[in-house]
């Protein structure tokens, strides 16, 4: 019989998910895939919020997840608009080659 699932398991899963997302943000160089990895990071935070909300019997954590999703939606909208703009001006989407803001 396996031991019951506790908050520790859920926080560990959230940490693993966060580490995967972080590796994705640092190692991928396509702007679109960096945005996708950011979504994994936000989801890891959401999982931790829901886990603590369940453990403490308090719904505030779930409200926080709602706000995180709103921020993620706004971030994706603006981020994808910038991606489309980048591909229209020169077509380069490699984060290492984008240095038009440097002077």
């Amino acid at each position: 019989m396996t031991p019951p699932i506790t908050i520790n398991h859920l926080i560990a899963l959230s940490g693993v998910l966060f580490a995967i997302g972080l590796v994705g943000v640092v190692t991928r160089r396509n702007v679109l895939l960096i945005l996708l990895s950011l979504e994994i990071l936000l989801s890891a935070a959401n999982l931790a919020f829901v886990a603590f909300s369940r453990s403490l019997g308090d719904l505030s954590g779930q409200i926080m997840v709602f706000f995180v999703m709103i921020v993620a939606a706004a971030e994706v909208t603006v981020g994808l608009a910038i991606t489309v703009l980048l591909s229209r001006h020169g077509g380069k989407l490699n984060a290492d080659e984008l240095k038009s803001l440097k002077w």
């Binding site: 940490g15 190692t27 160089r29 895939l33 490699n94």
Partner: peptide, 24 residues
Amino acid sequence: VFRAKSWTMISVGTALGFLILWQT
């Protein structure tokens, strides 16, 4: 699709990931 060409970037990323894993 671009991947990190420099191995420093990949190793820094993996090290960061393991640091977070260790902390959690």
